[in-house]
Simulated scan of single mutants.
Amino acid sequence: MSEIPILKVEDLRVSLPVDGGTLNAVRGVSFDVNRGETLCIVGESGCGKSLTSLAIMGLLPRRAKREAAALAFDGQSLQGMSPRGLRKLRGDRMAMIFQEPMTSLNPAYTVGDQLMEALLTHRKVSRSEARARAIALLEQVGITAAERRLAQYPHQLSGGLRQRVMIAMALMCGPELIIADEPTTALDVTIQAQILHLLLELKREMGLALVLITHDLGVVARIADRVAVMYAGEVVETGTAAEIFSDPQHPYTRGLLSCIPVPGRTRPGEHLGSVPGVVPSLIGSFTECGFRERCPLAREACARPIGLTPLGEGRAVRCVLAETEEAAA
């Protein structure tokens, strides 16, 4: 009997009303996340990565519409769950690290108050116990003078420290799943490496499942077990990190990888690859391959809806070339 995934997402769709019609921002996204696994969702800005994470957490804008064939946490459906039920899960068994800690932390409250809030909400503990837990976690995420930091406000901390506070906040109740939405975007390279190392260490120590959303393939190479590549609201390729980097199947994935300098192979001053063109508008009806207008291998068949073609266990690609090869096989 196979283990139930900690997170199951099947045919997730998110739409928002905008001027000129309906923006179909997430279009049929599917993936599973197992316990102790790191799934990286990668793609350029605007491809629907963050909206996918917000849809899972039930934090979409009020006017957004979420639909899915299945959306479950540890076998428990998140669809139709009451706001109270979602609040019991969020911050407790599933938590999120947001992209920009300066806008995610409340400037009017101290770091200590914001850290303790989740534990006091979800556990029957005293303030002194919550305070002790907050200090221990700040120390665990590498913040010195942790007790003194509790009395400080977010603006008194550096970007790296604020991000560490966000990680500590997500860990307060010992969650089984953490979704991290580009947690290193606003940080310099040295701090980025420290934060990634910290996330990996915490995942190993606590047995967490981690969904990391990023546009940085360098980050993916260092941290991912499995990868889902998103483009224009869809997952266009999935596989292990080794499969994606050594044998990319989708033209978009190949284009992304060509943009990365390869140590020992890319000469100084050499031009890197690029993906020409722009992302198509997802307002209104949209059925063709989203990458069609930018793809050097595009053909007539790309003008119709294209499904994910399985290439093996956990490996799939959304491309007519894969369909053709499967039919030939």
Rank of each mutant, 00 (worst) to 15 (best):
140 Q>K: 15
129 E>C: 00
101 P>S: 05
140 Q>H: 13
84 R>H: 12
92 D>C: 13
110 T>F: 05
125 V>T: 14
110 T>Y: 09
39 L>K: 09
95 A>R: 03
68 A>M: 11
62 R>V: 09
118 A>G: 06
139 E>F: 02
50 S>T: 15
126 S>G: 14
116 M>A: 06
94 M>Q: 07
75 G>S: 11
57 M>Y: 09
135 I>H: 03
76 Q>F: 06
137 L>Q: 05
127 R>G: 01
109 Y>H: 15
122 H>V: 10
77 S>V: 11
143 I>Q: 03
105 L>M: 04
140 Q>W: 05
43 G>F: 08
140 Q>A: 15
112 G>D: 08
48 G>M: 14
111 V>R: 08
124 K>M: 05
102 M>F: 06
112 G>F: 09
142 G>M: 13
74 D>S: 15
97 I>P: 02
67 E>I: 01
88 K>R: 15
60 L>S: 05
130 A>K: 03
65 K>M: 12
73 F>T: 07
79 Q>K: 04
121 T>V: 14
126 S>F: 08
56 I>H: 07
46 G>F: 08
45 S>P: 04
56 I>N: 02
95 A>V: 08
93 R>E: 14
82 S>W: 02
132 A>W: 00
62 R>H: 14
48 G>T: 13
72 A>S: 15
44 E>S: 13
53 S>A: 15
71 L>S: 13
136 A>N: 05
97 I>D: 06
120 L>S: 02
90 R>Q: 10
77 S>T: 15
135 I>T: 11
114 Q>G: 07
138 L>T: 01
99 Q>H: 09
133 R>V: 00
128 S>E: 15
116 M>W: 00
94 M>H: 04
118 A>W: 01
100 E>H: 12
89 L>R: 11
91 G>M: 07
112 G>Y: 11
46 G>P: 12
58 G>W: 06
44 E>R: 12
119 L>I: 11
133 R>Y: 00
103 T>M: 07
121 T>D: 00
40 C>D: 01
68 A>T: 10
79 Q>A: 10
57 M>P: 07
75 G>E: 11
107 P>R: 11
60 L>V: 13
91 G>C: 11
90 R>N: 08
41 I>E: 07
84 R>F: 03
126 S>L: 07
89 L>P: 02
107 P>V: 13
110 T>I: 04
102 M>V: 12
104 S>K: 04
65 K>G: 01
134 A>M: 01
127 R>I: 06
91 G>F: 06
91 G>T: 08
128 S>Y: 02
73 F>P: 09
